[in-house]
Write a protein that binds this DNA or RNA. Structure first.
Lengths: 341, 341
DNA sequence: AAAAATCTGATTTACGTACCTCAAAAATCC
DNA sequence: GGATTTTTGAGGTACGTAAATCAGATTTTT
C-alpha cells in the first residue's frame, strides 16, 4: 500500500512531528536526522498526498487576473475561461478575481497592478503591455514576493516569473510555412493585416511570417502590412480595397483580431477569385468562415489552456515549488474545417 | 466561504446522515426530504469536495490497460504514457496494470479481456481489434458491470462505453484537405500507404482522404493504396518503387505506421523532385523528417491525452458519474516543422 | 391496534496531512 | 556543572467527506 507519513516516521525511527518538520521545511531538525528521514522517504517512495495536504492546510490561493476590456472574441473567450476557472475555484482552492482595464492603456494597467499588489494575493496573471512602467509595476509585485505570470502577451526582461502564451514568432512562421506551401509555384502577392505594430505579439508574428516566406518562396511578394487596429470596420475597409485593387493577390494573412471585417469583405468580393486565407484565433466568426471555406486555416492559442496553465504556475510558485516548463508550454493549434474541435 | 455538508444539513433542517444518503444515492430517504436536501444544495451552491471525498472513501481504482505488443513508436509511446499514468497512480488513487498482447491477434486479445475480467477491476481500457469475438468479450465485461473504453482503435456497436481516440475519418479528410491545397492547380498522382485495410482506423482514414480529394480536385488522381503492414522494411520497398516508377507523383499520404521506411525511401530518392508528404503520428522519426523537410505535415493523436481521458472516463463510470463528452474529445493535431511542441 | 418495515437523527471513526502545544531529551554555552 | 538553547517526541485538533452503528420516529402492513 502507498506509504504515509506514519510509515516514514517508523522507518526512520523518528516521530511524526519530525517527519513533518522535514517535509515542510520547518526548523528544528539536525542534519543527520533530516538525512535519515529523507532516506526513508527515498526508500519507501513516499509521495505526499496532495489532496490530503490541501485539505489539511485548508489554504486558498487568492489570484488576481488583469485583462484588457477589449471586446473582441478572443479576449471575451479569455475572460470567460477565467470566470470558468473562478467557478471551479472551490474545488481547486483558488479565489480568482478579475480586473479589467481599458485596452492598450499603460497607466491604467499600472494602476491595476498596484491595486492588485495592495490586496496581497498569492499571485497575479496579467495580459501585459510591453512598456517600461509596466515592468516597474511588475517588479514591485515581485519585490513583495508576489509571483506574476504574463498571459497571452509577454513582458520580456521583467520580473515576471512565467509566460503563459504561445511563441508568436513560431506562430508567424507556421502561418508562413503553410501559406508558402499553399501558393508554391505561383507568382503573386500576399496581403497582411495586423492589429498594430506597436503590439509585441503582432510584430513577432509578422517577423516569423516574413522569415518563412521570403527566402524559400521568392516568387511570392509580401505587401506592406495594413494596420486594422483589431477593429472589424477598419479591417473590412482595408481588405475590401485590397481585394479590389490588387489583381495579383494570392493570399491573405490576418494576424490580429477584427476578423469579422475580413470575413465580410471576403463574402462581398465580386469575382470570387481563389485566395488562400490564414487567420488567428478560433472564434465563432472564424469557425464559421472555415466551415464555409472563406478561410483556409486558423491558427489558435487555447485560452482555456493558457488560463489553467497560469493558475497552475501561480499556485506552484506560491508554494515555492518548481514548474515543469515543458508541461506548461502552450501549443500553436492549426485548424482546418476538417479538424475543428 | 464554500458550503460544506454541514451547511447543507442545517439549511435543510436534516442531519448529516441524511445529506450523506442523498448525496451518495443511498436508500432510506423519503422523497419530500430528498427534495429539501436537494433544494438546500441548489440554494447554497454546494459542490462536493472531490479531494476530501476521495480521501474519505480511500478508494483505489484498479484499472487494466490492454495494448498490443507492437513495436512501432506510437504504441511504444502509448505504453509509456500508460506507465507514466501508473506512476501517478498514488496521487490519483488508481492502480494501473498493463497487459500486452501480440498485435492483430484476436484470440490473444480475447484471452486478455477475459483475464482482466477475472481480476474484477474498476475498468478496462483496450486497443480494440474490430472483430466479433472481441465484441463478445467486451460484452462479458459489461455484463459484470465493468466499464470498458476503447483506446486509439474503436469497436463500434459493442458494449464499450466510450472511445478514447480520434475521429479517423476526419483525420483522413484533414489530410486530404491539406494535400489538396498543397497541390491545387496541378495535375498528377498521389500515392497512399496504409498499414492494412483490414484495420478499421486505416480504412476510415482512407475514406476521409478520398472524399476530401476526389470531388474538389479532379486533376489529382489517387493511386491505389499500398499495404505496408506497418513494417518499415516493406514500406521502404514500396515507396522506393513508387518514387522510381511514378513520374507524375506529386504527393504521398502515409496513414499508418512504419514511417521509418518511408523516410528512408525519401532520403534515397535520386532526382529530388518536390513531393508533398503527409504522415501520421509524431514520433522521433517523423519529427526528424519534419525538421529536415522530408515530410511536410504530420497529423497526430496525443497518446498522453488519450490515456488520461480513458482513465478519467473509467473512474467516472466506476462512480456512476456522467462524462462530459465534449471535454473528452481527442483532437487531431496538425504539426509542421514550425509548430512542433 | 400491534407488528413490521422503513425512514431519520445523532454520533463516531476514518482517510492523510498540516500545524499547534507541551514536555522531555540532547546538545551547547559560560 | 548548571543554565541555556536546540532538537525531538507525544499528542492533539482540524480539513470535508464517507460510512457505519444505534436509537428513535414514522409509516405501512397485518
Amino acid at each position: 500500500m502507498k506509504p504515509t507519513v506514519h510509515d516514514i516516521a517508523s522507518e526512520a525511527g523518528v516521530s511524526l512531528a519530525t517527519v513533518d518538520r522535514v517535509l515542510n521545511g520547518r526548523p528544528g531538525v539536525r542534519a543527520p536526522t533530516r538525512e535519515r528521514v529523507l532516506a526513508a522517504i527515498q526508500k519507501l517512495g513516499f509521495v505526499r498526498d496532495v489532496a490530503a495536504a490541501n485539505l489539511a492546510k485548508g489554504r486558498v490561493y487568492p489570484l488576481v487576473f488583469i485583462v484588457p476590456a477589449n471586446d473582441n472574441s478572443f479576449m471575451a473567450a479569455l475572460r470567460g475561461e477565467i470566470a470558468a476557472a473562478g467557478m471551479r475555484g472551490a474545488q481547486e482552492r483558488t479565489a480568482i478575481s478579475i480586473l479589467t482595464v481599458p485596452a492598450f492603456d499603460i497607466p491604467a494597467l499600472v494602476r491595476a497592478l498596484d491595486a492588485a499588489r495592495a490586496e496581497k494575493p498569492a499571485g497575479v496573471a496579467v495580459v501585459a503591455i510591453d512598456a517600461e512602467p509596466v515592468r516597474e509595476a511588475v517588479a514591485r509585485l515581485a519585490a513583495d514576493g508576489i509571483p506574476v505570470v504574463t498571459l497571452v502577451s509577454d513582458l520580456p526582461d521583467s520580473a515576471r516569473s512565467h509566460f503563459a502564451g504561445i511563441d508568436n514568432e513560431a506562430a508567424g512562421r507556421t502561418a508562413g510555412s503553410l501559406m508558402g506551401r499553399f501558393l508554391d509555384g505561383r507568382r503573386g502577392a500576399i496581403g497582411i493585416i495586423v492589429g498594430s505594430l506597436d503590439v509585441r505579439d503582432h510584430r513577432e508574428r509578422l517577423d516569423g511570417f516574413r522569415a518563412a516566406i521570403s527566402a524559400p518562396y521568392p516568387d511570392l511578394s509580401l505587401l506592406s502590412p495594413l494596420e486594422g487596429r483589431d477593429e472589424p470596420e477598419r479591417v473590412h475597409q482595408m481588405v475590401s480595397r485590397l481585394l479590389a485593387e490588387e489583381p495579383e493577390l494570392l493570399g491573405l494573412y490576418s494576424l490580429g483580431a477584427g476578423n469579422r471585417g475580413l470575413i465580410r469583405a471576403l463574402e462581398e468580393r465580386r469575382p470570387a477569385r481563389p485566395i488562400r486565407v490564414i487567420a488567428h484565433e478560433l472564434t465563432p466568426h472564424t469557425r464559421g468562415a472555415l466551415e464555409t471555406g472563406l478561410i483556409d486555416t486558423v491558427l489558435n492559442q487555447d485560452a482555456g489552456h493558457e488560463v489553467r496553465s497560469a493558475i497552475r504556475v501561480l499556485k506552484a510558485r506560491a508554494d515555492g515549488q518548481p514548474v515543469i516548463a515543458a508541461q506548461e508550454r502552450i501549443r500553436i493549434d492549426i485548424f482546418l474545417k476538417d479538424n475543428l474541435p
